[in-house]
Design a protein around this nucleic acid. Sequence first.
RNA 1: GGGCGCAUAGCUCAGUUGGCUAGAGCGCCGCCCUUACAAGGCGGAUGUCGGGGGUUCGAGUCCCUCUGCGCCCA
Length: 853
Amino acid sequence: MTGTRVPEKPTLDGIEDRWAGVWDNQGHYTFDRTKTRDQVFSIDTPPPTVSGSLHVGHVFSYTHTDCMARYKRMRGFEVFYPMGWDDNGLPTERRVQNFYGVRCDPSLPYDPDFTPPATPDAKQQVPISRKNFIELCEQLTVEDEVVFEHLWRRLGLSIDWSQTYQTIGRNSQQVSQLAFLRNLKRGEAYQAEAPTLWDVTFRTAVAQAELEDRERPGAYHRIGFPTTADPLTKVFIETTRPELLAACVALVAHPDDERYQPLFGTTVTTPLFEVEVPVLAHTLADPEKGSGIAMICTFGDLTDVIWWRELQLPTRPIIGWDGRILSEIPEWIATESAISQYEHIAGATSHTAKERIVARLNENGDLVGEPREITHPVKFFEKGDKPLEIVTTRQWYITNGGRDPKLRADLVARGSELKWHPAHMKVRYENWVEGLNGDWLISRQRFFGVPIPLWYRLDGEGNPIYDEIMMPQEADLPIDPSTDVPAGFTEDQRNAPGGFMGDPDVMDTWATSSLTPQIAGGWERDPDLWARVSPMDVRPQAHEIIRTWLFSTVVRSHLEDNRLPFLNAAISGWILDPDRKKMSKSKGNVVTPMSLLDEYSADAVRYWAASGRPGTDTAFDVGQMKIGRRLAIKILNASKFVLGLNATQNDAAITEAVDKALLAQLAKTVEQATNAFEDFNYARALEVAESFFWNFTDDYVELVKVRAYSETDLAGAASAKAALATTLDALLKLFAPFLPFVTEEVWSWWQEGTVHRSPWPDSSTLAALAGDGEAAMVADIAEALSQIRKSKSDAKVSMRAAIETATIAANDHVVQRLTLAAKDLQAAGSIESLNFASAENIEVTVVLAPVAQ
RNA sequence: GGGCGCAUAGCUCAGUUGGCUAGAGCGCCGCCCUUACAAGGCGGAUGUCGGGGGUUCGAGUCCCUCUGCGCCCA
């Protein structure tokens, strides 16, 4: 009557596909939406970018979250564990262009019957509407997402696969646009003119992440600025961009620079353009660079933007979106001669303008000496071949406290409400919020993103009146203003005088990603679901995007619901190369996650991941995976042995002191693991479980083997079996969050249902079973056993070799405890006669039995 | 330049509110085919806890300082 189904030769092979299939069929991880908020543990899963491939870093951090999810499920929570795909953004845009041979032209109308070219030609890309383009993006990303899902299932993530979303999907667009409209209605979203990094070839704003520095030749031009007080005295600056002279708004030097201190607070006049500008002090001015005093233009580079902002300087742009000098005479160019100088460069490219300005400066004697050639880093769009300009454009912003001390203080307070794991990560959030000096720019001049859902009235000449915004009805979302028409207008009024135009921009990807709780949780779309899962219990994420993803999510939730979007932030570390450098994408892709799963098993890879403590960078280490694999195999074999002893019932009386001691130790282990998990420290929980497990197999199982087999000491055998069964049951549960496959495999040999919905072990129940058992006895026995083994090892004999007499010396208390285990010790060590003596520390002396020849 | 973190055995890392002789695994060395496991088991050796100073009866742990490394921000 074994009642068990233990295989002859347990193996890890094939268990992943088998159990992943069973879990899916039986819906173990499907969210039960009858559960109320207090019964739910909800996870704001990070949506991975699907345009690349998953690397070991993903496996690492997603495993951490899954361990927590599995733990919470066993604690009786209904876990809401969705999965999103981040397919919104430029990487996807590029893939679609190349894959289908198309390009997006937002001015085109939607063609519902469009089919991409059969033989895509990257050089002859077919222009299509934004809506068509987005449809193709969705088609292509769906294919990537299938591959990702397969990997996640193989890794054993206990995701509810009926809860998925795409950041470019209809639901995400709807949420993103709705949230934006709510921001707008409450006055939290606004448009303003502001400096933006701009690629003149692509005519798009460029994000900081897409910048790269390239070393380019340039030349310092030494130019004299007459002081206002005495026009015969000149201040000499050196600049690589003399063509921006007409955009000069100030000169700047370091506050400690004694050469220029007398000039601070005075004014100078720009050569050629005769504009009076102040001389100011700022620490970013480098006394070593050029003449130590620089001209600030709006805008030559990013430092100009900082100076402009921090010194509150006027905006005098002269470069247009096409990279040419603006044709219209700027209002600050006032004198007749200045106007004629400007007309000389109006409409020219910056290259031509530079030549002309230099020539004029030379003629006027404002240029000193020959330009001094240098090489310096210049910012480029990674895909562009012309240096970036900084142009002033109309953009949309959302308030984030950068310009509002009250909001800023409120957002800092939100950060303090949030429970951070590890706690020190909160400081990064605080530093970021306290250091903000501008609102959140959310508009982007791109195609593949969520459109800004607005139209503008056009005046009689066809120019947009940006103050006359037309919003869609919330019920009509999502909309695309490039193809949809505002209420009261018809399509033929698009871009016509007196008609309307759609906002051509899309939102920053963070403007959508900041709403993942709302997207996944059914905000406004499914209020019943939203009430059951929000605010989310945990946001797992990496530390480098605290300032972006985490912060922006807090902003949106604060503005919309006046609360946190999630209660805990679980911050994961990074995967480093074995040489401690951050693992690069190229290197990460050399070792694909799937090949690791094939080689070491999913449980083994998960073991490695779960060994990395929260927030700590961890080395990529196949050694840990080998250990994980060994642990999984050991669990199979140890379980087989325990079940082979017919130790499947745990209802017998546990009477032996050794057995009670084991359970006391187990109770302690469960308590520690539980506390660690409650603190989101899955790594600690794994460590204590593992440590107990090895002691269990190495010492306890060896110790009670003989007694458990005994057919004479029935009470002793029953006690051992009950302790073994109780311990195996608890161990499988302790390991289940980490090693879901092997624990489920073993569970299936002797239990019904799934281990992953079984209740987490309870330390007080185990402590009650342990009764007066002393946990410390386990260590005493381990020490005694170890010394007995050592004596055999030293004598180079088998562990089965008989010992004639053994004497264990120890202090009285330990001797008392070990006496209770004397019979088991004798059996385990093949000791004929066991004596005890008194000593400070445990010390075993043995006399080996003569070896029979 | 500002902030945060890290530094413990050859390697990867634990070490909770300060408290017994600082631990684990890998690797290394030795032993053992043992009726769960030889893709295994058992045992052994291995430390200036980055340097210096301080607080304390007592410091890997707390404070100061220096050095090196990483990340974020400017």
